[in-house]
């Protein structure tokens, strides 16, 4: 088994785990964490594809690697906005849940 396949499996498991957490955890913060786990899994898949594409003297295909950097930055921005919304919701209501009150 090549390391690309090993980490490919790893990434598949991470996506599944994150998905499970995203669906089952009622707390929004845990959902945000879960989203980050899925994100890591997806990015790792980019890494595996890049690793398989090693050529021209590069250890990996630089294009997917660059895309991951962009993706990581976007994921951070998403996390920050989600956290800000959650904290504001908590400030306003004293609760941090997405369950509707009515």
């Amino acid at each position: 088994m090549s390391i690309a396949i090993l980490y490919g499996l790893c990434s598949a498991v991470l996506v599944g785990l994150g998905l499970f957490a995203l669906i089952t955890h009622p707390q929004p913060l845990r959902k945000i964490l879960a989203f980050n786990l899925i994100g890591s899994g997806v990015f790792l898949l980019f890494g595996v594809v890049a690793h398989n594409g090693a050529a021209a003297g590069f250890g990996g295909d630089p294009v997917p690697q660059a895309l991951v950097i962009t993706g990581l930055v976007v994921a951070f921005a998403s996390t920050a906005l989600a956290v800000a919304l959650l904290l504001r919701l908590f400030q306003e209501t004293g609760r941090a849940t997405l369950q509707s009150d009515d």
Binding site: V42, V49, S78, L86, L89
Partner: peptide, 27 residues
């Protein structure tokens, strides 16, 4: 605010699934 947060979570899940598809195409 609650509606916005729920929207964001759905949208993020959507984005990440989209991205997963994109990497499969590239791979």
């Amino acid at each position: 605010i609650k509606a916005a947060l729920r929207y964001l979570l759905f949208a993020l899940l959507g984005s990440i699934l989209y991205l997963l598809g994109a990497v499969l195409f590239y791979g």
